[in-house]
Nucleic acid binder design. Sequence first.
RNA 1: GGGGUCGUGGUGUAGCUGGUCUAACACGCUGGCCUGUCACGCCGGAGACCACGGGUUCAAAUCCCGUCGAUCCCGCCA
Length: 454
Amino acid sequence: MRAGPGRLSRERPLSYMEVDMERVLSSELSSHAGERIMMAGWMHRIRRLGSGMVFVHLRDRGGICQIVVEAPEAIASIDGLLVESVIQIEGTVVAEPQAVGGYEVHDPVFTILSPVVEALPFPINKPVINAHLDTFLDHAMVGLRAPSKQAIFKLSAGVQHGFRSTLDAKGFTEIATPKLTGSATESGATVFPVEYFGKKAYLAQSPQQYKQMMVGVFERVYEVAPVFRAEPHQTVRHLNEYVSMDAEMGFINDHTTVMTVLTDVIHGILEYLSEHHAKELELLHVEMPLAPATFPHIYFPDAQQWIFEHHGEDCRGEPDLAPQHEKWLGEWAKETYQSDFVFVTGYPMVKRPFYTAPNPDDPKYSNSFDLLFRGTELVTGGQRLNKFDDYARALESHGMTQEAVAGYLEAFRFGMPPHGGFAIGLERFIMQLTGLTNLREAALFPRDMERLQP
RNA sequence: GGGGUCGUGGUGUAGCUGGUCUAACACGCUGGCCUGUCACGCCGGAGACCACGGGUUCAAAUCCCGUCGAUCCCGCCA
């Protein structure tokens, strides 16, 4: 077979199907032993051993394989090329015990699709990338090609897939809500204003109101989408744009129904990763989280009491937990319940947004929860108000007008079941799962106070 | 918004109790050698006026001030 894009493209229009059928990936060599095949990818590593022998490591979406170059004309054809040059080759698959993976490609004929003659900003073919995060992010478009960086985002894709498939199986409908909104309502989080045809608009800081409205349509909905937070934070666990995996469902008893669904979702995600991303989990040395059938949970004031008794810090009466408190609770859950996840329930109403349902037996506290993952807040969720009159009262006590959220309120005037939901921070999940020290490493092109490029 | 730390070739670091710094090491790049390398190895080379501006001093990468940039913590949140 004499394959090659030149021949195909000259004789008739190229179809992707044809290319895919002919192109062999580096992960597929074992099933082509002895065959003459076509491959394409990046020159991940080039090892020139004297004048008579060159080893080229070809990287494609299947992985990395080795090409052995011995013919003088073949060696000459890649002379001067640096790593990351894009090549297509035709070569023979050979079983070779010396090769990593047991197979390699011999007698290659090269087609240079895109030569690189300039050194990379930093080497990306090393086991560890030696670049500061800031330097790395400046060159993320190239740095992300490093296998260890690819793996992070393969896992990220897997987390999203696990989220979707678990909820699909539970009868949820995936929705897409607007990211441009006309009003800056919602909780205390600040919003980014944008110019919108002479009007004032805002980037959505959450799909909260829309997903609630859609409970009135589909009962159960979810969305995976970016949210925007204009808060001026500079920490390793905050971004100004991140991916929120939101879910909302009707006909619940209370927030504990939501916690049960969330627990299933976490299990579903972890199972999906184990089944489909073993390679990435291994490459990143991921220690799979301890996730018992039910996650331990602690009532907010009880958590504060426990912190006082066990760590001597008196935060009782405070409306929220500090990061250090969450770390302690995470350690407690792991030691006592062998769980990397722990629910904190019943956050004070004063700290929760207006749509939060109170605990009927203890109205100072809410029917809401946070889920901590290895000591860091991963999920916020809870039961929402569902009666129009409750909203009217809640808005008033929050100093908000009904006009500001008129469209949202209409859903509640016309029958909304008891409902609740949650939102998982995708990058947070990846950071805690893989042990990254900075959330920015879990975003392809992170947006923080200082970074808008690339 | 408040506070801390840092800024040295393309990259990551050492030097920083001032003077043998004419700035060292590793990766990368580059010339040479090696026909089984896979974080290859060996010999050589290029590449940094030490973020920028000012000051102290006989002398500043090194000490002081300012500017800019980066980074971390707190607040806030996922």
